[in-house]
Lab assay of single mutants.
Amino acid sequence: NQASVVANQLIPIQTALTLVMMRSEVVTPVGIPAEDIPRLVSMQVNRAVPLGTTLMPDMVKGYA
């Protein structure tokens, strides 16, 4: 099973992502693949992302 990127904390809207905000976890449905974590650093979320939420491509500006 492929690991996805999951929020390690509440990430407020417009926040630039850092490594400490994300973790990898095998979840359903599958979100952004964990191997993309380095690419996500400094990208902004376009909505508030609660703790434990799987990051989906449409939540990160410039990802999809």
Rank of each mutant, 00 (worst) to 15 (best):
N1Q: 15
N1H: 15
Q2C: 06
A3L: 13
A3I: 06
S4D: 02
S4N: 01
S4M: 01
V5N: 01
V6T: 05
A7L: 03
A7T: 09
N8P: 00
Q9N: 08
L10H: 15
L10M: 13
L10D: 14
P12V: 05
P12S: 08
I13A: 15
I13F: 14
I13M: 12
Q14H: 15
Q14R: 13
Q14K: 14
T15Y: 06
A16D: 09
A16L: 11
T18P: 01
T18K: 08
T18D: 05
T18M: 09
M21S: 04
M21P: 02
M22L: 12
M22Q: 00
M22P: 00
R23S: 08
R23K: 10
E25M: 11
E25A: 15
E25Y: 07
V26N: 11
V26M: 13
V26Y: 13
V26D: 06
V26T: 09
V27M: 06
V27A: 06
V27W: 03
T28E: 14
T28M: 13
P29E: 06
V30R: 14
V30W: 11
V30D: 07
V30H: 13
G31H: 02
G31I: 02
I32Q: 00
P33F: 07
A34Q: 06
E35Q: 15
D36G: 05
I37M: 13
I37K: 06
I37D: 00
I37N: 00
P38R: 11
P38D: 09
P38T: 11
R39K: 15
R39Q: 10
R39N: 11
R39M: 14
L40Q: 00
V41I: 14
S42H: 11
M43P: 00
M43N: 04
Q44E: 13
V45Y: 00
V45G: 01
V45R: 00
V45T: 12
N46T: 13
N46P: 01
A48Q: 14
V49M: 04
P50K: 11
P50Y: 09
L51W: 13
L51P: 13
G52Y: 04
G52A: 06
G52M: 04
G52H: 07
T53Y: 10
T53C: 08
T53F: 11
T53W: 13
T53M: 11
T54D: 01
T54A: 06
L55C: 03
L55F: 08
L55E: 00
M56H: 08
M56F: 09
M56I: 07
P57N: 05
V60L: 12
V60D: 02
V60K: 02
K61V: 15
G62W: 08
G62M: 07
Y63A: 03
A64C: 07
A64G: 12
A64N: 13
